[in-house]
Design a protein around this nucleic acid. Structure first.
Lengths: 349, 349
DNA sequence: CTGAAAGCGCTAACAA
DNA sequence: TTGTTAGCGCTTTCAG
């Protein structure tokens, strides 16, 4: 037998469908006689009535869905963000529609179009580039958007990001306290806000702490992954091997360094110290356990969902962006400088 | 300005909305004059017409969505499955609605209800227990369901699972070829098909290879995670420490072993060898790199989506289940037995 | 081949 | 407080 409709409920309760609708909807319940409300609710329960959200959407042109755009679900950075988003959306009666772009702009375009076709009420975007054509279009089209983990130029959409500058400073200070003076930075891609913010923070920290500032010590990786990290470190080793530590743009880049360590027999941390960023899962079980900067992934998601909900509920409220605090997690990929480092310098030069 | 509707297109093309609908829908296009089709399509493109899927769904009662039910997105096992599912669903014009249950039956219930309320056309379920009340209900209600990674009792829904038995056998054979004779098994929960299938396969392999068969060598973990794995190994160590290798129910359980190794100063693989199962990411960077059985996660997802699509398109086709081949990945957590193992026996007893 | 008309299930004016 | 009416945007008979 087919699922009960509002009409069935109304008929069984002896009222008009309109009345049944009001009785079942908490916002309009107070316009209906108490007794009637009770009766309708009771009948609805008996019939196992479930409102059809499709029909409601068609009428109200509200779907109760938010699009979530991430590069790749397979990157451990994103699942906690997604969970965070959904943990806030769900109790608010919204649900998320997830798409992966694989970092491909054209795929992103079609995915976003599909989301729009499905009438999402807003978009939470984790794939933003510093200059992102699609974002501008979205802004022009009046699509509600919040950025998570990235803060692009030229858009005043709300965003929530970790405190990149503080994180990098924590990393550099940690290394400096261990006696490192020539510290390298494997920066993330220059077209991402996180990439440039972290690189800038690195330079500032190096300057403030009076460490060696040498442009050859900063290499920009093409992507936020292991391959790019490995590539970056090889480049660094080729041009200037006299550094004793590296601050990686993120954990995956740091893992790329591990690959190079293995391939060249470099002893981490005795020859080179590394610190990552993000504190993704299982880092404590690596060889060696990776020192990193923990960013509150889940909270990143939660805050972005809250921002979205605010946007939906109070469209006129001035937009705001939030920055979340980070913390240093010291493990075993960083150590005090020693003669080993000096020896390594010559060996790998 | 508001998005163009079918009416707008029809008006601009000088035809009736019904005709425009037929012209735009590939299935009914052949009922319309070629020229008219062309004109309507052209006008639609000019107006940037996007059909409203909500309205279409209301009429056809097909939503083009499939619910995907997983325990936890944060477990690295699932994202590849989800990506696999979506890679098949997407080109077929369907999209997935993802929910996480956190392994909580009541939460699962509400999540599935929400999915049903959203009128999903089918459910792909990765959370199945061996005896799963909800599944039976779903079956009774005629909800299209396919199981991925699990194959419950008492349901004839299609399923796609890795070849658990072959995987365990591969692991045991590998260990046996290294000279291990007393091999322990940290089994997954007894209420999951994977847990019991693997435990049974373990016993069979031990028997077939003439290894030491001792019930105390099999400990069942309460969950598929690190804590449960650590707990299991401690129990094993307490009751019978004279094993030289352990086959873990999955990689996370194996990681739990690593925790115990660290806490007790046990040298893996020299004192105890471990093999995991699943080959989740980054295992190659652990200390030591974990030997494991690779299961084709993504393909698991792909096949389950294909099964679902078949169910949708040919409801009368006999149901079938698929089993996917697995392979052994030898890394450094397994080694030949030696005096070390003997020494360890006494030390940890 | 195309137009007309009905209606999917619900909500929101407007009346009463 | 409740009933009436119209219609969200689309598909799909049924005529023509």
């Amino acid at each position: 037998m087919k699922p009960a409709t509002l009409r069935d409920v109304a008929a069984a309760a002896g009222v008009h469908p309109g009345t049944a609708s009001r009785a079942l909807n908490s916002a309009t319940q107070n316009l209906v006689n108490r007794g009637t409300v009770a009766r309708v609710i009771k009948v609805a329960a008996e019939l196992g009535y479930q409102p059809n959200p499709i029909a409601r959407s068609l009428k109200t042109s509200k779907t109760g869905t938010i699009g979530i755009v991430i590069p790749d679900l397979t990157n451990p950075f994103f699942p906690p963000i997604v969970r965070g988003i959904e943990s806030i959306l769900e109790p608010a009666g919204y649900s998320g529609l997830l798409v992966s772009t694989d970092g491909d702009l054209s795929r992103e375009r079609t995915q976003v179009a599909a989301l729009r076709a499905r009438q999402v009420e807003g978009l939470i975007i984790a794939t933003a580039l510093l200059d992102h054509p699609l974002l501008e279009e979205l802004g022009d089209m009046g699509v509600l958007t919040v950025m998570v983990n990235r803060r692009p130029h030229l858009t005043n959409a709300p965003s929530v990001i970790p405190d990149d500058a503080a994180g990098i400073r924590l990393a550099v200070e940690h290394l400096a306290s261990l006696g490192h003076r020539r510290i390298a930075h494997l920066a993330g891609p220059a077209n991402t806000s996180t990439g440039v913010a972290r690189a800038r923070a690195f330079q500032d920290a190096v300057a403030d702490l009076d460490l060696v500032s040498d442009p050859r010590l900063i290499v920009t990786c093409k992507a936020w992954n292991e391959d790019a990290g490995a590539h970056g470190l090889r480049e660094l080793l080729a041009t200037s091997s006299d550094f004793t530590a590296v601050v990686a743009g993120n954990d995956l880049i740091a893992l790329g360094c591990y690959d190079v360590f293995a391939e060249r027999g470099i002893d981490c941390p005795r020859e080179i110290s590394v610190v990552g960023m993000n504190d993704m899962p299982f880092l404590d079980k690596l060889r060696p356990p990776l020192t990193t900067v923990a960013v509150p992934h889940r909270q990143l998601g939660e805050e972005s969902a809250r921002l979205m909900l605010d946007l939906l509920r109070e469209p006129d409220r001035p937009i705001r962006s939030v920055t979340l605090p980070v913390s240093l997690v010291v493990r075993a990929s960083t150590a005090v400088v020693s003669d080993m480092n000096i020896a390594a310098r010559d060996r790998h030069r």
